[in-house]
Each structure stands twice: as C-alpha cells, then as structure tokens.
Amino acid sequence: MQIDVLIIPYVVIIYSSLLSVFMTYLVVRERDLLIATILTLTQGVFYSLLYLLLMAPDLVLTYIPVSVGVTPLLLFLLVKKTERFER
C-alpha cells in the first residue's frame, strides 16, 4: 500500500497552492494593515510547507526565520510607528 502514502504530498501541494492564491487576494483586499501583515505571515507558513514538500530543506530553514520571524516583526513595528488603516 505504498501508493496511498505517496499521494498525500501531492494533495497538500494542490491544497496549499490554491489557498495561497486566495491568501494573496485577501492581502490585496484587506484594509487593516495589521491583519494584512498577519495574512502575509500565514502565507509564509504555507510557503514553508510547500518548500518542505518540494524537498528543499535549505530553503525551509531560510524561509521560516525570514518570513515568519524577521519580516513580520519589522512590519509590525512599522505599522505601529506609522498608521494602521489603509484609506
């Protein structure tokens, strides 16, 4: 029953790539910049999952700190220092 196990990654790949399109759409539409930042962060998690499924452990190790750690933190600080809502 090797086959059943093997289809799981492909299903997850389809799922996360379709979801990431939806996420990007939400990021473009969202007017609250703080929520948009959190959406970007969530998208980053999905992308890391994709990197993992696409067999790129080096990229996972790079991408998780960058997109889930450093960039959102800097963005939170920026939004806090500037303005929260897009008009």
């Binding site: 080096d58 190790l61 790079t62 700190p65 960058v66 450093v70």
Partner: peptide, 14 residues
C-alpha cells in the same frame, strides 16, 4: 546537513 551561513544567521537573529 541542510543549512549554511545564511540559514544559521537568520535563525540566530530570531
């Protein structure tokens, strides 16, 4: 193993 200077650096920056 997977990793390298940049990966390690960004992890430490966290």
């Amino acid at each position: 193993t997977p990793g390298g200077g940049f990966q390690g650096g960004t992890i430490a920056v966290v």
